[in-house]
């Protein structure tokens, strides 16, 4: 990879990384593990970038690499919850991410502003779940709540965020 390619790669990756990570986290639901898969995807992408055909969308190319990396992960971490995530599911989802990646970028930008609407317990639960990567049971123990309670709080927080995101996107489109 020469210096020009390195700059090109960095810029393309910058744009693609959030959606690549979301794609990976859709199948690898343990977020720390999803980061490992993102790491290996980046490693392979850097190495193979000289072979990348710029006439193809970068997001499609790099999600193709992520798909292989997810399959590798699932093979080496086989369990009941992983066994039915198959190639067809990953391929179908990859196509969806490729088609709506610009919409997903817009939703992510909206999310940044919307996070501020979460207050109190909702903010605490979301931070434990996503900043600290804790599962619902661990969040419940940490906050002295029941797992059912945490699930309800999480669901309400997602709903609030989705509504806020959609309102913001609608407003931007109207403007």
């Amino acid at each position: 990879m020469d210096s020009e390619q390195a700059v090109d790669f960095a810029q393309l990756w910058t744009c693609a990384q959030p959606n690549v990570f979301s794609y990976i986290a859709s199948a690898v639901r343990n977020l720390a593990d999803a980061e490992d898969v993102l790491q290996s995807t980046a490693t392979v992408a850097v190495r193979k970038f000289p072979d990348y055909d710029p006439s193809r969308p970068f997001i499609a190319w790099v999600i193709g690499i992520a798909r292989f990396e997810i399959l590798n992960y699932l093979r080496s971490h086989s369990n009941d919850r992983h066994d039915f995530i198959d190639e067809e599911f990953l391929a179908t989802l990859a196509s969806a991410y490729e088609v709506i990646h610009e919409e997903l970028d817009a939703r992510r930008h909206a999310l940044r502003s919307c996070l501020s609407i979460l207050k109190g317990r909702a903010r605490q639960v979301i931070e434990h779940r996503y900043l600290n990567g804790m599962k619902t049971g661990a969040v419940a123990s940490g906050l002295g709540l029941s797992p059912g309670n945490v699930s309800v709080i999480l669901n309400r927080a997602y709903k609030q965020l989705r509504e806020c995101i959609e309102n913001r996107i609608a407003t931007e489109v109207t403007l």
Partner: peptide, 26 residues
């Protein structure tokens, strides 16, 4: 269906990135 799943599931990954400070103003 796959697109709708992507919209919902992307929030999962995006929350992780945003809260970790990985979501940059672009």
């Amino acid at each position: 269906n796959a697109k709708e799943f992507a919209r919902i599931s992307s929030l999962h990954g995006q929350l992780r990135m945003e809260l970790q400070g990985c979501g940059k103003e672009v």
